[in-house]
């Protein structure tokens, strides 16, 4: 029986889709059978981040409305044979789907897949309600900014009210240099404020922009963000992985400088 994970945030633009693509791909790399569902009906994005935009025939709404079988709508990933995408509809509204229908779809997919990842739209309206309906656990993505954390807090409240079994936060786009000089909240600050367990910290990394440009998830690659995403995947599988040293990429001289700067 598979597990359904919703990736959500409240605020837009904090990295839900990038997180879904990378965590999903990472779980597939670790040998799990994974399907990613883009639940952002009307604003389709996950397909381009995955580089699968040219292969879409059917979409989520087609499946829900019975225009095709689930198997027909699933797009097989280019790189990993055990990774699939169910794209969202671009020309429909969020109310084309109900939470009960999403729940049923998730139940069906659970029989076939180990992990079902739902990329949730921004906001707390219908699209959000659809996305969380069938989920067993939630990953709340936030950046270390006042607005994103405030929205994450609201989302966490709503997840609790909907009796989500497990909720974790991912602090995205952290800049260690800014944290060090006191101009950015640290991941510890975010955890203290939100009072929810952390499952990973992803540094702000140019490689993500490059990877997204190319439609290639970067999980598992040698850059810091790639390592951070892979660690999140391992933690989802229940492995104990220590938090990444986000300054590791800074080079010898910077580290040497750091020694003299301050205790």
């Amino acid at each position: 029986m598979g597990e359904v994970i919703v990736v959500t945030s409240g605020k837009g633009g904090v990295g839900k889709t990038t997180t879904t693509a990378n965590v999903g791909t990472g779980l597939a790399m670790l040998g799990k059978k994974v399907v990613l569902i883009d639940t952002d009906i009307g604003l389709r994005n996950l397909d381009v981040v995955m580089g699968l935009e040219n292969r879409i025939v059917y979409n989520l709404v087609d499946v829900i409305e019975g225009n095709c079988r689930i198997k027909q709508a699933l797009i097989k990933d280019k790189r990993y044979p055990n990774l699939y995408l169910l794209p969202s509809a671009q020309t429909r509204d969020k109310d084309a789907v109900t939470p009960d229908q999403m729940k049923m779809l998730a139940e069906q997919l659970k029989e076939e897949f180990d992990y079902i990842l739902l990329d949730c739209p921004a906001g707390i309206e219908q699209g959000f309600k659809n996305a969380i309906a069938g989920a067993d656990r939630a990953l709340v993505v936030t950046t270390p900014e006042v607005s994103a954390i405030r929205d994450a807090d609201r989302i966490i409240g709503l997840l609790e009210a909907n009796e989500m079994k497990q909720t974790h936060i991912i602090v995205n786009r952290l800049r260690m240099d800014m944290v060090k000089r006191g101009d950015m909240m640290s991941s510890d600050d975010v955890v203290e404020i939100l009072a929810v367990d952390l499952i990973g910290v992803v540094p702000d990394d140019e490689s993500i922009v490059v990877a997204t440009n190319q439609g290639e998830p970067l999980v598992g690659s040698d850059c810091l963000a790639g390592k951070a995403y892979m660690n999140i995947c391992k933690r989802i599988l229940g492995e104990e992985v220590p938090l990444l040293d986000l300054e590791a990429g800074n080079g010898f001289f910077k580290k040497l400088g750091g020694l003299f700067k301050k205790k």
């Binding site: 900014e145 006042v146 954390i149 405030r150 807090d153 609201r154 409240g157 800014m178 944290v179 000089r181 006191g182 101009d183 950015m184 909240m185 640290s186 600050d189 404020i193």
Partner: peptide, 20 residues
């Protein structure tokens, strides 16, 4: 006061009234 701490303090206040 660093801007990170300012952000944290502001956020705490906002969340208290949000949550209440």
């Amino acid at each position: 006061k660093s801007s990170g701490n300012i952000a944290k303090d502001r956020l705490k206040l906002v969340l208290v009234s949000d949550r209440a």
